[in-house]
């Protein structure tokens, strides 16, 4: 499951217009946010990895995307510990799950979740 629909309903049930607005922002900025994590791994910049993964984790958390959020958190911890072994693989999983998330969120309807 890409996201927790009940949780999302609770977060945005009264603010659906805000949800649609920030979902548009998320969709638009996804490549940029993933790019920052990608670059941090590529350049083995631990601090940049920690910050970029943390920021992305925050966004994923806003959309109640538990699995993707956990992957981002793994990367954040790796950045904090200066540990890059396996980071690329986790990043690839994060990228795949984020793209699935976007598709799933596009199809989300508040009326069916209620």
């Amino acid at each position: 499951m890409e996201f927790d629909s009940k949780e999302l309903m609770m977060m945005f049930g009264d603010d659906q217009e805000i949800y649609f607005e920030i979902f548009g922002d998320f969709e638009q900025s996804l490549d940029e946010m993933l790019g920052e994590i990608d670059n941090a791994i590529e350049s083995k910049n631990a601090e940049a990895l920690q910050i970029s993964a943390h920021t992305f984790k925050g966004v994923l958390s806003t959309f109640c995307a538990v699995e993707s959020k956990n992957l981002a958190f793994e990367l954040e911890k790796m950045g904090r510990d200066g540990q890059f072994d396996g980071a690329r693989e986790i990043f690839n999983n994060l990228k795949t799950s984020s793209l699935s998330l976007i598709s799933a969120l596009k199809g989300f309807q508040f009326s069916s979740a209620a």
Binding site: T55, G58, V59
Partner: peptide, 9 residues
Amino acid sequence: DDDRINNKM
């Protein structure tokens, strides 16, 4: 918040 999406929300 540096995260513009959360900030906006």
